[in-house]
Design a binder for these strands. Structure first.
Lengths: 196, 196
DNA sequence: CCCTTTCTGTACAGACCATTACAGTATACA
DNA sequence: TGTATACTGTAATGGTCTGTACAGAAAGGG
């Protein structure tokens, strides 16, 4: 009976995600979203309820399609010894790939953390959750890389590496070289901890 | 001949600075600035030329009155051995002081780094300059604290501590406890480097 | 083929924004 | 005290924004 939806919801969310990623929530307008998604205003509101609803869908998509896949090897039951180094290298490559969204815009969530939308409880909670997940994944990666390390040292090293990753995200837009170097430093620390 | 200015320019800039700090450039409106500064629209435009002009004045004031004084002990000719630890402790106290601007809003510049205004070349340059100054100051502080440390280790430790400070700024709004802990980690690293 | 249901495009409404134009007012010197 | 000068309040301008209302188009089942 009902007419079927003529567009692929996931594609729409991905297009919106790119826009929010680039410009942030407040600085992305409905007309821009119309153009990027190919949908008209009506369909956007009919499908997502509001600009905020579309943003939430974009954030969830960012979480599932961008963040989680990178962390997956560190969240698996068995973590490869080099998984944490590969994570950092992969991130660094993304940062050095000129023109890519991570290189030019950093992290959608970390950007939101300093913006007005970051004051929103739901968004703030999600960012805190991501930080916590990142921290846990990195700690597991370090454990797999340097099993002999005392737990206290592992934990501290995880704090440091997590901080360096977040600092890299925060600075990529204004100091890309330093942001990449920050990841390099994290890599070196893990390497030398294993040697010690 | 000319009528003298009836308001204290510095006070106006400080009031505007607090607003920009809390809400960012885009999310602060002229009516809000009028109310906070006590000036009318005319006087704001007459004195600062534009909203952007007032923002630039606010950023300069932030640099001179907030950031620089904290770094000063690390930029003096002779740096005290504990200056870098005191810097981190002072920052941590500011972060833990509930309701204060640093605790609730982090850093005006780091927030701007992820916002649209951070794409502006002048603002981006200023943020990069601050990062570089912070990094240099921290390195000098570490040198003063642990003079025996090899230069390579000092440099790496400075990278790490700088990253942890920036990560703390980036996360304070959404994860204040973790942000403060990040500074604690930085402190511990410097302490244990000195002991080694 | 018809009819119900859903999707979609256009036009509108109401609010806010930064900025400017202009008139009025207060000052400091002659 | 007069007057040139600069400061300041009001009001208007032109633009943009999100969200909504409504009409029309498309699609699937009977």
């Amino acid at each position: 009976m009902p007419r079927t939806q003529a567009f692929a919801r996931d594609d729409v969310v991905r297009a919106a995600r790119a826009l929010f990623w680039r410009s942030g929530y407040d600085n992305t307008s409905i007309p821009e979203l119309e153009q990027a998604t190919g949908l008209s205003r009506s369909s956007i509101y009919n499908t997502f309820g509001s600009k905020r609803g579309l943003f939430d869908a974009a954030v969830r998509s960012y979480f599932d399609e961008i963040l989680r896949p990178r962390l997956a090897p560190l969240q698996a039951e068995a973590v490869e010894p080099h998984a944490v180094l590969e994570y950092l290298d992969g991130m660094r490559r993304a940062f050095e790939q000129a023109g890519s969204l991570p290189a030019t815009c950093g992290c959608l969530l970390i950007n939101a953390a300093g913006a007005p939308i970051g004051q929103d409880a739901a968004v703030a909670g999600l960012i805190a959750e991501y930080r916590s997940e990142l921290r846990a994944a990195i700690e597991r990666g370090i454990e797999a890389h340097s099993p002999g390390l005392p737990g206290e040292r592992t934990s501290q090293l995880a704090d440091v590496v997590t901080g360096l990753v977040i600092a890299a995200f925060a600075l990529i837009r204004v100091a890309p070289a330093e942001a990449a170097a920050s990841l390099g430093t994290a890599r070196d620390l893990i390497g030398s901890a294993g040697a010690a």
